[in-house]
């Protein structure tokens, strides 16, 4: 698969504060990538580097094999979905039509209609969910091959969130060829639904990266009578260990679950998995692609 976004040793500093450190990533074509991490972890920075709103301090970022700037091919929905408050909904569509050569007016109008937006309504009077829907309509109607979304659903209620994600997934499914999407969010349950790849950022670094199915299939919680981590079978990489007087709980990465009467081994939910990589600074080993053999299917 060709990489749509590729970063190599990417660094970005604001003054002396590092926002992104040594980020090497590759986003495969047609994937939907979720960016997770605490606030200030570098998610927005990464997205803005990819769409050319920011330039790297060092390292490179390439989009479609070239430096960012191919505006017509990239859609971006910025955090808080900034729109012109005095513009009506249809003014925004008109702006999109005038500024984008590949503008798909029919798609834009359909999206606006589906979202139940009144074309004569001023953007300043839209609800958060409506704004997000309008921003999405604006971004997708330029028919981008890469769509970047910075916390698009952060401010939305569950209903508006679901509607937004439905719209987004409909766009992904109906476009030919299938566009690549990178979006950041705190809502792991959403990401689990709509993403096939996940990038975990913390403290400006990439902590984990991979296909969601692979991540879910290879991470387990192992509960057992108290024992040392190195007594576990080879092939299990212990990411985290916690001991009480009698019990040990391990977070492990393994190709497949191993049944043993002496322990309980359950799959780790995405939330626990991500929380682990977000919070444990000792486990900063990022995403080496082959730490564990692929699970058999």
């Amino acid at each position: 698969m060709t990489a749509i976004v590729e970063t190599r040793a990417l660094h970005k500093r604001y003054g002396r504060r590092p926002a992104l450190t040594d980020c090497t990533l590759s986003v495969p074509a047609g994937s939907v990538v979720g960016l997770v991490g605490p606030n200030g972890a570098g998610k927005s920075t990464l997205l803005q580097l990819a769409c050319g709103l920011l330039t790297p301090t060092s390292g490179t970022v390439e989009v479609f094999g070239a430096p960012p700037g191919q505006l017509a091919r990239v859609g971006f929905v910025a955090q808080d979905t900034p729109l012109y408050p005095t513009f009506t909904v249809s003014d925004h569509l008109r702006m999109g039509a005038r500024l984008n050569p590949r503008w798909d007016a029919a798609l834009a109008e359909r999206r606006v209609r589906q979202a139940g937006l009144d074309p004569a309504q001023k953007a300043g009077r839209l609800s958060g969910g409506q704004r997000a829907q309008l921003a999405l309509a604006l971004a997708v109607a330029k028919r981008p091959e890469l769509l970047l979304l910075d916390e698009p659903v952060a401010a939305l209620d569950p209903l508006a969130r679901r509607a937004f994600l439905q719209g987004l997934m409909e766009f992904v499914a109906e476009s030919e060829p299938q566009p690549t999407v990178v979006l950041s969010s705190h809502l792991l349950s959403d990401l689990e639904r709509i993403c096939d790849h996940l990038v975990v950022l913390a403290d400006s670094r990439v902590r984990a990266e991979g296909g969601i199915d692979d991540l879910l299939a290879t991470h387990f919680r192992l509960t057992t009578a108290r024992r040392d981590a190195d007594t576990l079978p080879a092939g299990m990489r212990v990411l985290h260990a916690e001991h009480t007087g009698r019990q040990s709980t391990f977070t492990v990465r393994a190709a497949a679950p191993v049944d043993d009467p002496s322990w309980v081994m359950e799959p780790l939910g995405l939330e626990d998995l991500v929380l682990h990589y977000m919070s444990d600074p000792s486990e900063s080993a990022p995403a080496d692609p082959r730490p564990v053999p692929e699970p058999q299917r």
Partner: peptide, 14 residues
């Protein structure tokens, strides 16, 4: 101030 530059700079106009 309103962040709309992020919207308008990501239309197809440099």
């Amino acid at each position: 101030e309103t962040g709309t530059h992020r919207t308008v700079w990501n239309q197809s106009v440099p």
